[in-house]
């Protein structure tokens, strides 16, 4: 218990986090998409878990708090999961949604 909450331990975690940060910046410079994704988001998840466990002390908190927070993250995934089939697939059999990248018109609010 005490080893988990000593200043030395915190500094160690911080040092690991900084190393991970440097990796996550250097990784994408290779220009390989898979490496970018892994280093950027994989490392983000690792870092977030470390902060949550060691700084927020989820490791010594009651377990159901972790489940609560994970449950909330799952809510976000549920939302994205239910929504992405519509948002990510703009083409359909009988209708077409055109995606235009540039702003085509400037609307002025108000009514004449």
């Amino acid at each position: 218990m005490s080893a988990e909450t000593s200043p030395k331990h915190y500094v160690k975690i911080w040092a690991i986090l900084v190393v991970l940060l440097i990796l996550s910046v250097l990784g994408p410079m290779l220009g390989i998409k898979l490496v970018t994704l892994l280093t950027a988001f994989g490392i983000a998840i690792v870092k977030a878990t470390m902060v949550a466990n060691h700084f927020m002390h989820l490791n010594i908190e009651k377990k159901y708090i972790s489940y609560l927070l994970i449950g909330m993250v799952l809510m976000v995934f549920l939302f994205v999961g239910g929504t992405s089939p519509d948002v990510l697939m703009p083409e359909g059999q009988h209708w077409e949604k055109q995606v235009i990248e540039q702003p085509v018109e400037l609307d002025h609010g108000g009514h004449e």
């Binding site: 909330m72 993250v73 976000v76 939302f79 994205v80 992405s84």
Partner: peptide, 17 residues
């Protein structure tokens, strides 16, 4: 978590598109 999640989830979907 759900507030940021809603915003970032929307962003990720648009970004993938």
């Amino acid at each position: 978590i759900v507030i940021f999640g809603g915003l970032l989830g929307s962003y990720v979907m648009y970004r993938l598109l």
